[in-house]
């Protein structure tokens, strides 16, 4: 591995000052599961590596009345180990507990997964349907942005050279709502999604009609996709097989997959439909509903 300077700022102010002075020569270190591997392979050669984990805001889990706030460097394991978070935001746990394996999850951070901007990132569709908002800081100030607008292309995100992702905020889930994430891989664990999908549904008080539906799909376009068409297509429709299948069809039509070593474009289109349907089924169950056959 090339040599580099290692910095450990203890406050956000110190960190943003470093980002301003080093700019694109610096890389932020959270879990290191992308950065350290990338540096060892020679793909990434930052002159300065800045460890963000000593800054409390970067690793805090705050569950309050106005929702959940996660420091961007919070590890996946600390998220899925948190029972309260698991009860209220189960879709987040679906994602956090299947990125890599246990010892990857002990390090890999939720913010890192987003900043890495992989089209197949397993947390991003979930963050999108949960309406997560990214807090972005630099020494110039703070701005917020919905996660659905964060990724620009493979390995490309909206952050300027002096900016960093500080936190992710999730609003409280509405009543009668549920969320879920799933993915297809050719084996059971430790693989990269061929296709993944997340859904969050809000049902009426009788749990028989969709009030609001959000669906996001991954590994089928240059970025994870928020497919509002698919969710809107089944708003106010009855919770049944036909409705859910229709959302699957619409999501499939929105996918723009490529063929690569993990799967063909045709297979990915088909999987988009199936993963969307399965995410919706589980989300409906978690919202207290039942998918009927009529």
């Amino acid at each position: 591995m090339h040599n580099f300077d290692f910095k450990k700022p203890s406050s956000v102010t110190e960190l943003t000052a470093m980002m301003t002075s080093y700019g694109r020569d610096a890389r932020l270190l959270a879990g290191g599961t992308d950065l350290i591997v990338g540096m060892r392979s020679g793909n990434l050669r930052p002159a300065v590596v800045i460890d963000a984990k000593k800054i409390p805001t970067m690793v805090e889990i705050q569950l309050e009345k106005d929702g959940l706030t996660l420091g961007a460097a919070t590890s996946c394991r600390r998220i899925w180990e948190n029972r309260q978070v698991a009860d209220i935001y189960p879709a987040l746990i679906d994602s956090a507990s299947l990125i890599g394996g246990t010892s990857i999850q002990g390090r890999a951070s939720i913010g890192g997964n987003l900043c890495n901007a992989s089209p197949s990132a397993d947390s991003v569709p979930t963050l999108i349907v949960m309406r997560a908002v990214a807090t972005i800081v630099s020494s110039r100030g703070t701005r917020t942005l919905p996660v659905k607008d964060f990724c620009l292309g493979p390995r490309k995100n909206v952050l300027a050279d002096d900016e960093l992702l500080l936190q992710l905020h999730f609003p409280p889930p509405p009543k009668h709502s549920g969320g879920a994430f799933n993915r297809f891989i050719p084996r059971n664990e430790m693989d990269i999604a061929v296709v993944n999908a997340a859904a969050e549904v809000e049902l009426d008080s009788s749990h028989t009609r969709f009030v609001d539906v959000r669906i996001a799909i991954g590994a089928v376009a240059p970025t994870p996709l928020f497919v509002s068409e698919a969710g809107n297509a089944i708003k106010n429709k009855p919770v049944n097989r036909k409705t859910i299948d229709h959302a699957g069809d619409v999501a499939m039509a929105c996918a723009k997959p490529i063929s690569d070593l993990r799967g063909t474009a045709d297979q990915r289109r088909d999987l988009t439909r199936i993963m969307t349907i399965r995410a919706l089924e589980r989300a409906v169950r978690r919202a207290g509903g039942t998918v009927t056959d009529d």
Binding site: G32, T102, S103
Partner: peptide, 27 residues
């Protein structure tokens, strides 16, 4: 593997199992 895939280097760091190949000594 030296890239976080095989787990041969697993140690427990502050109570959490990690791949020690993907941790910097300075951390």
């Amino acid at each position: 593997c030296n890239d976080g895939n095989c787990g041969a280097c697993t140690v427990i760091l502050d109570g959490v199992s990690v791949n020690s190949c993907c941790v910097l000594g300075v951390e």
